[in-house]
Simulated scan of single mutants.
Amino acid sequence: MAAHGELTPTSYIQHHLQNLTAQVGEGSFMTLHVDTLVTSLVMGLLVVMLFWLGTRKATAGVPGKWQAFVEIMLEFVDKQARDTYHGASKLVTPIAITLFFWILLMNMLKFIPADFIAVPLSWVGVEYWKPVPTADVNATLGLSISVFFLMLFFALRSKGLGGFTKEFLTAPFGKWMMPFNLILNIVEWLSKPISLAMRLFGNMFGGEIVFLLIWVLGGAGLLGLLGGATFGLGWMIFHLLVIPLQAFIFMMLSIVYLSLSEDSH
């Protein structure tokens, strides 16, 4: 990677927003975003390890600090899931826990300045590395498509193939309006995963751009350094709320969609 002094602000931002890719076939569809895949996997494994550490020495007596924290967080997510989902499935709470904590840890990578990751990687020949997986629309679409298939699973398990097909064709206007029902239901079902993905991606990608702009400002002399530090601190404090909020919204909407998929119109 070229030294930052040789990069214009625009090229600096473009450089940090470019993914490390690997081609596994012909066409753009066969291009893998290696940084997104690797970082997402690492964050997922980190979630598992952190919870395992909380349960490794679990006790029914006075819990340790980490065990207490894990129990509080799990009880919080479990309560939200139970209050929102009104079906009988026992899968909803594990799904909610996985979504919330996995997305939370991926979002928290935003707190690490981009150069703290990119520069060391450039020393070993890695030219590009986009550190925040949820700032990549491929990652958020992957999560939302997984939720979409879970919606189908919940709907088919609750209503059966016949009941699901009948409702898809006859609700909400009745059997005489079947073409309109079909169009409306297709739009409704497809809009849910797309809105889930774009909401999370838009917030994380926009925040990433602002962080990079502030980082560029910090390199413009002493005044820029003071301004960058001030704005950076303020934007980071703001993201202390945004980052968990976006993970919470994704989790809650996913639970709502799973609940709605089981309801009859």
Rank of each mutant, 00 (worst) to 15 (best):
Q67E: 14
M177R: 14
V92L: 03
K90C: 04
V62F: 06
D263I: 15
V47N: 08
I95P: 00
F51E: 04
K130V: 04
L45W: 08
K79Y: 10
L104E: 00
T165P: 00
S40P: 03
R82V: 10
T21A: 07
G44F: 08
K192H: 05
H86G: 13
H265M: 10
A2M: 09
F149R: 04
W102K: 11
G5C: 06
K57Y: 11
W66E: 07
H16K: 10
L258H: 02
V42Q: 04
L37C: 04
A60L: 11
I13Y: 03
V256L: 11
S261K: 11
G27R: 09
K166W: 01
W52S: 12
G125I: 02
G64Y: 10
F29C: 07
L143W: 12
P94R: 02
G234W: 05
S254V: 05
V147E: 01
Y85N: 05
V70R: 03
H265R: 13
H239E: 12
V38H: 04
M236Y: 09
M251N: 00
L233C: 09
P9W: 05
H86I: 02
F180W: 15
E71S: 15
F205K: 07
V187H: 04
V42M: 09
V92T: 09
E127C: 07
P113L: 05
T140N: 09
L45C: 08
I237L: 13
S158D: 08
A135N: 03
Y12H: 12
G5P: 02
V119N: 09
A60P: 03
V256H: 10
V137I: 15
E208N: 07
A139K: 13
Q246R: 09
S122F: 00
E75A: 15
R82W: 07
L196E: 00
A155Y: 01
W215K: 13
Q14I: 10
W176D: 15
A139R: 14
T31P: 02
G234C: 01
L222M: 12
A118P: 08
F111W: 06
H265F: 14
G160V: 13
V62I: 14
G163A: 00
Y128F: 15
G25Y: 05
Q18L: 05
L196C: 06
L46A: 14
F76C: 10
F205L: 14
A88N: 13
V126C: 01
T21F: 01
I186P: 09
I13F: 02
W66F: 14
W102L: 11
I209F: 06
A197E: 00
L74F: 12
A197D: 00
F116R: 12
K65H: 10
L217W: 05
S89C: 06
V242L: 09
L184T: 15
A139E: 14
H239R: 12
M43V: 06
I243Y: 10
L182M: 15
W235I: 05
I117Q: 02
T134Q: 08
E75P: 00
L7V: 06
Q18M: 13
G44S: 03
I186Q: 07
M49G: 14
S259E: 11
S11G: 11
I237A: 07
M151S: 08
M49K: 12
L45Q: 07
A220K: 12
F51H: 09
